[in-house]
Structure formats: structure tokens, C-alpha cells
Simulated assay, not measured.
Amino acid sequence: MKKTSTRLADGRELLYYDTADGRVRDAVDRRPLTPVATASEIRYDALLGDSVAVASHRQDRTYLPPADACPLCPTRPGHESEIPAADYEVAVFENRFPSLAGDSGRCEVVCFTSDHDASFADLTEEQAALVVEAWTDRTAELARLPAVEQVFCFENRGAEIGVTLGHPHGQIYGYPYVTPRTSLMLRSLAAHAERTPGANLFDDVVARERADGRRVVLAGEHWVAFVPYAAHWPYEVHLYPLRRVPDLRSLDDAARAELPSLYLELLRRFDRIFGPGQPPTPYISAWHQAPFRHPLRADFALHLELFTVRRTTGKLKVLAGSESGMGAFINDVSPESAAQRIREVAS
């Protein structure tokens, strides 16, 4: 992998990731951009014990532009974009409308391919492996920033999720705090170790699912994917490396090499869940990594959580009173039925 770092016209960092070492990336961003002005602020909720990012400048962010005005496509005559090059493999840049910035963290955009009409599932294994390398590299780089406590690599796909740009892309958040969901996992991890000295909660969950087998949907030599026993979403899959590691940087070569094929298979199955002729399945794909400075960092398990808000053809799982008001989920699909369906649509 070759990484080339440059700057956009307003000073934001842009990085190209290429498979060929000899690739030259010297295109210049010639747009007349003014420096980015952000108003990101972290506020602590004393009742819930968590934090909220207030980022009012995001109200002006680009919203569902036509394909010929896409800011993530390569630059071409008559259309200058966030990517000055005429083509690219993977590109990462600082978000012009970040939720987190400066002392409040960092937000980056990851463009998976220059093909506007593609999706992650359309990538080759080599292309997917390059995205994994980019995620890993950004995790390592953001870990060096004093303001960042945790790195979250994720993809929102589909208008139903709230995506504002149709180009295949994801994001990377460098949070200045440990997120509420991770805090809950760490609390459960500590409680399990106290109840069962010498045991690790993540290891025990993975072992239980592998032994049961009913919810396992895909297994490789180094990874296993399953619908969790208490899945919150109608179709939800968790993907774990069999050797527990805290983050993407810690994967060994064998696990790293196997990941692209398994991940692509999961995404392609998600697009087949609801049958032929249906629109692409909206989903959130979220990499959970250990906080950098937490005492339980070594006990945390890197894993992917992939889920869709679609519960059946033409119907969405809406977070209504119980879920939104109380955080108490009610699932319309049994995890065992969901696992069976995801196995049925295997390639």
C-alpha cells in the first residue's frame, strides 16, 4: 500500500491510498475555498452520564446532490470536487462539516471507490483489502492525537439511514471521550470478570455462539459471524476474529488476509435478504474498537456490527416510544429466523 498526503484548498488533509507503490498523486485543489469554520462543542449530560456533540454548522452540509455534482467523485472538467485527482482507489479527507473538530476530536470521510454507482459489496477483494488498510492506518494515526480517546470506522448506506451523499463512502470519528455504547460493553466486561475470575466476556460470547451454532451465519479459519442471541435489529450480524484483539491495528496477517472475502460476502447477503428485485438494503456497518487509554483495553474485542433498519419488504424498523424514549428495544424478527435467512442467501 502507498499513502500520499496532501492538502485541500482550505487546508484540510487529504490522503490517497493506492495498491501500486509507484502511483503519483500530485493533483492540486484549485477551488476558492475559505477556511473551515466549526462550532463543535461537547456537552455532558449529567442525568444520563454521557456526552453530546453540538455542531450547529452541520445544518449547511451538502444534502443529496445530483450525481453530476457529487463532491466525492473525482475532479473532471467543469466539476471540481473534494478529490482533485481525475481518479482514485481509496481517498480519505477531513470532513468539511465535522461533528467533532479540534479539541473535540476529528471526523474524516472515507471514499471506498471513485465509481459513483458502486457499493462496498461491488468491490473486489483487493479493493476491500485496501479499505481495511486505510481504516487501520487512520486508527493508528488518530491514536496519536491527544484529543482522541476512541476511533470509530463506520458506513451508513441508504437514504433510510439518513445518508446525505449517494457516493459509496464511510466515515471515521475520533471521539474525545469513550462512547456510551462502548462504556456499557466495558461495564459488562468488568462485571463478568468479577463474577467469573479469569474469564473474558467477549471470548465467552463467541464460544457460546460457536457451540450453539443456530445463529452462526458465516465462519472462516480466522473469523466467525453470527446473529447475536439478543439482537436489537431485525437483521443484525456481528463479526469477530477468533483471536481476540483490541483494534484493527492488532490483527495478524492471516486474519487480515481473510477479512475482505468474509466481509464482502456478508454485505452481498444483506442485499439478498429481501429477495430479488428489491432496492439495496440500507445498513449501518460499525467497527467497534477499544479506547486507547482505558484500563480494560487489552480485554476488549474488536468486532464489526452490521445491521439494517428494514424489517421486511417495504417496511422499516422505526425507533418509536419504547426504543427512542426508554432505550428498550423490541425486535420483530427472532435472531434464529434472521440467521436462517442470512444463511439461505449465501453466494
Rank of each mutant, 00 (worst) to 15 (best):
A286H: 05
P246R: 00
W287I: 11
R297I: 13
F202A: 03
H222T: 15
P246N: 01
S261E: 10
P282W: 08
S250F: 12
S285N: 14
R293K: 09
R272P: 03
F300G: 05
F202N: 03
L267C: 02
D247R: 00
V227H: 10
S261F: 03
L201S: 12
T196V: 04
P241H: 05
F270E: 03
S285A: 15
P291F: 09
A301L: 10
A290I: 04
S250Q: 14
D253S: 09
P241N: 06
T281W: 09
V224E: 03
G220H: 08
P282M: 11
V217E: 09
A230R: 05
V205D: 04
H288F: 15
R210Q: 11
R208A: 15
E209R: 04
P282A: 09
R297S: 07
E209H: 12
F274E: 07
D299C: 01
E221W: 02
Y263V: 08
S261K: 03
G198D: 12
H232E: 07
G220T: 13
V245G: 08
P295K: 04
S261A: 12
S250P: 07
W233Q: 06
V224G: 06
G275A: 11
L248M: 12
F292Q: 09
V206W: 02
A254P: 14
D212G: 13
V205H: 08
V205G: 01
D252G: 02
E221H: 02
A211W: 14
D204Q: 05
L201Y: 15
R269N: 06
E221A: 03
D299Q: 04
L259M: 09
H232R: 12
S250L: 06
A290Y: 08
A298V: 11
V206M: 01
R195S: 13
E221L: 03
H232P: 00
Q289I: 06
E221Y: 00
P276E: 13
R268F: 12
D203E: 05
R215P: 05
S261W: 04
A290C: 04
A211D: 15
A219E: 14
P260V: 10
V245Q: 07
P295A: 02
G220R: 06
R195C: 08
R249S: 07
P246I: 02
Y283K: 07
F270V: 02
P246E: 00
R249I: 12
R268N: 14
S261V: 08
Y235V: 10
F270R: 01
R214Y: 13
D204C: 00
P279L: 01
H222W: 09
L251P: 15
D204V: 02
H238W: 15
N200E: 10
P295M: 09
R293E: 15
P295W: 07
P282E: 09
R249W: 13
P241S: 03
Y229R: 04
